[in-house]
Structure formats: structure tokens, C-alpha cells
Simulated scan of single mutants.
Amino acid sequence: MRYQVKNVLAAQAELGECPVWSVREQALYFVDILAPALHRFDPQSGEHKIMPVPEHIGCFGLNEQGGFVAALRSGVCLLDEEGIITRRVAANPGEAAFSRFNDGRVDRHGRFWCGSLWEPQDRNGGKLCRLDEHLRLTVEAEDIKISNGLAFSPDDKWMYHTDTPNGVLYRYPVDDKGDIGPREVIRHFVQEQGGLPDGAAVDCEGFYWSAMFDGSRVIRLNPVTGEIVDEIPLPVRWPTMVAFGGPDLKTLYITSSREDRSAEELAAYPQSGDVFAVEVAVAGLPEPLFRQA
């Protein structure tokens, strides 16, 4: 299938990440981790709202009670509709001076999962955490350098997760309580052979769509065999994450980065940091809402 990729928002984000489609609002939310800010984009009107936050914001979820649950550098917080912190609920379980939260999402049981990265990258110091309905944060997995690519199978039996610099896609069995079993390797990636797996989403057929950082593409992958069954070439080298949106959830939104890029690199890829959209044949799944007890 030939895809037409459109630049829908010239955000020029330093590190655009975590696109989340609100079915209720028919709007796309995403973050610029390093700005730091939460963004809202209405594709119909073109309205773009930027809500600054006081520290690095790695990921967030839409809250059933309104506003957001978000993983900031210092820990997990609840934010109101304007992105203002209303409650700090859990501290970063790592060393906040050397680690920050990164990729994450809400599962279909209403729990918020958030992973962290180890900034020195001299060891696997990242963690994968879960926030339950009682606002208790627990560390569920470690031995990670940069936590990324968190997504769940349509039947909720598997959780997918990538470690970007280590170039690996895992899956974990997961039960209704959110307890995960031993991880399995689905696929290893080599940066020089098409990039490394970053943020991701799963479609209604259970296939895994991954933004390939430093690879100028998004891939659709069989989550059992690891086979790449489709890909979308992009006009940027550093895509970061994908999200399904639009009225039929067949619009794939893609965020991107311009972090730490030279003037020469940005001249070659001037749209770096922008948000892109492409129509795909298979719909995604509605993004769940975080539920508090």
C-alpha cells in the first residue's frame, strides 16, 4: 500500500512524544518532553494549544475524572484540564537526577503504566512502573536502558515493550490484575538496518506499529513472529511514537524529535519535531481512560 504522509502540525517540538487521541474530544494530545509542555491539537479547526508544565513530562493518560495522569521527572502527578498539577501521587522510584519518565499509557483496566530511562546510559537503570486505581505506584520490571513502545494486545493477554538503545522488542504475559510474567524477546533490531524501536500502538487486528527512531519510518509488525509486514516512509529521520485517531481510528498520527541535532541534520530534515498523519487501512483501538477508586 502506498501511503500519503501529511505534516498536520508544524510543532517543531524538541522531543515530541506520547500522542494520545481523545475519542470524546476528537482531538490529539501529545507532549514535548524537554520544553516541557502538554499540547492539544484539533485536526478539524487546526487549533493548537500549548500547556507548559514545570518539569520534564515523559508520558500521560486521559483521566476518567477529567484532566490527566502524567509521569514527570520527579514522579507521577494528576493534572487538571489546563495541565496544572493538582496532586503529586508517587515519587520517581529511580534517581531523578539521572533518570526521568519516558513512554507510557493507560491499559484497558484503567491502570497507568509508565517507564523510565537511565540518562547516563552506562547501565540498564530504567524501570517499568504501574499506577493502580488507589494511586499506588509499583515497579514491575527493570533491566531496561530506555523504556519505550508500551502497548497491549486487543485481548489484554500480552503487554509489549521496547528498550530502544538495546534494540529489542519484548512481550510479557499479563493478567487481569496487571501482574506480568517473564518477558520474551520478539525481535532484535540494529540501528544501521532501519532504526531502533521507539513508541508504538496496536491496531484492532493485534499488529504492532512502531516508530523507528533514526530510521525515517514506521513499521507494522507481527507481534508473535516479529515479521515486519508493512512500513511507512517518513520525511523525518527521528520519529518517536504513533497513535490511532480520527472518527474511525484509521488516521495514524506520528510525533518526531529534533533533540541534539546539528544545523546540517536539521537542514536535511527541516520538519523534524513536527506531527504527521497518514490514513491506514486497519483501525486502531480507543485509548482507555485512567480510573481512580
Rank of each mutant, 00 (worst) to 15 (best):
M1N: 15
V5G: 04
V8M: 05
L15A: 03
C18R: 06
V20N: 02
E25T: 11
Q26A: 03
Q26C: 09
A27P: 10
L28C: 11
L28E: 09
V31I: 14
I33R: 04
P36Y: 10
F41M: 14
Q44I: 13
K49N: 12
I50R: 03
E55K: 10
H56G: 10
H56V: 10
C59K: 02
F60W: 03
E64T: 04
Q65F: 06
A71K: 00
C77Q: 11
E81I: 02
G83K: 07
A90K: 07
N92V: 05
G94V: 04
S99E: 09
S99V: 02
R100Y: 07
R100L: 05
N102W: 09
G104E: 11
D107V: 08
R108V: 12
G115P: 06
W118C: 06
R123V: 13
N124H: 13
E133F: 14
L137M: 12
V139W: 00
A141W: 03
D143P: 11
D155Q: 01
W158G: 00
M159Q: 04
Y160A: 09
D163R: 00
G167W: 00
V174K: 01
D176K: 14
D176N: 15
D179M: 12
D179W: 13
V185G: 14
I186P: 01
H188A: 10
H188G: 10
F189G: 07
Q191I: 10
Q193G: 04
G194Q: 02
G195I: 02
G199V: 01
A200P: 08
E205L: 14
A211T: 07
M212K: 01
N222I: 04
V224C: 07
V224A: 14
G226W: 02
G226D: 14
E227G: 09
D230W: 03
L234A: 07
M241T: 14
A243G: 14
F244H: 12
D248Y: 02
D248C: 07
L249M: 03
L249W: 04
L249G: 08
K250L: 04
K250Y: 07
T255Q: 08
S256C: 09
S256Y: 06
R258A: 11
D260Y: 05
A263T: 08
Y269M: 08
S272Y: 02
S272A: 15
F276T: 05
A281C: 11
L285D: 02
E287L: 01
F290V: 06
F290W: 00
Q292I: 12
